[in-house]
Amino acid sequence: MSNWNIPTDLHYTKTDEWIKVDGQEALIGITDYAQDQLSDIVFVELPEVGTSYSANQSLGVVESVKAAADIHLPASGEIVATNNDLADTPEILNQDPYEGGWIVRVKLADPSEVDSLMDASAYTAYCDERG
């Protein structure tokens, strides 16, 4: 039984990001597992709106006191919005990683790229495996 909250309506990456597709656009964040591993998050480096990235490219960094992790884009696209609340209250990522803690909104280049990502059950197994 997994210790982490892993919503069933999202897709997941091996680097512990989630993506929620809504038509041509998608919201992206880090998972409950990722925030738990990092512990208290103190800073999020956000990309500039208008920049395009390819899938798996690093678009920013999440930092806790003891660790730093790159944020990778699950699918290619252009940044259309960033969550500016994270600048002053990065702890939202610990408290509410899937709703208040979204990191960027992206206009997807090819929404079908998301199909190759893990679904909730595959990601749950992946987290359990790592303990």
Partner: peptide, 11 residues
């Protein structure tokens, strides 16, 4: 001093 709040220092 006791254990210090490193999270507060960084935030």
């Amino acid at each position: 001093v006791g254990r210090l709040d490193e999270v507060r220092a960084a935030r």
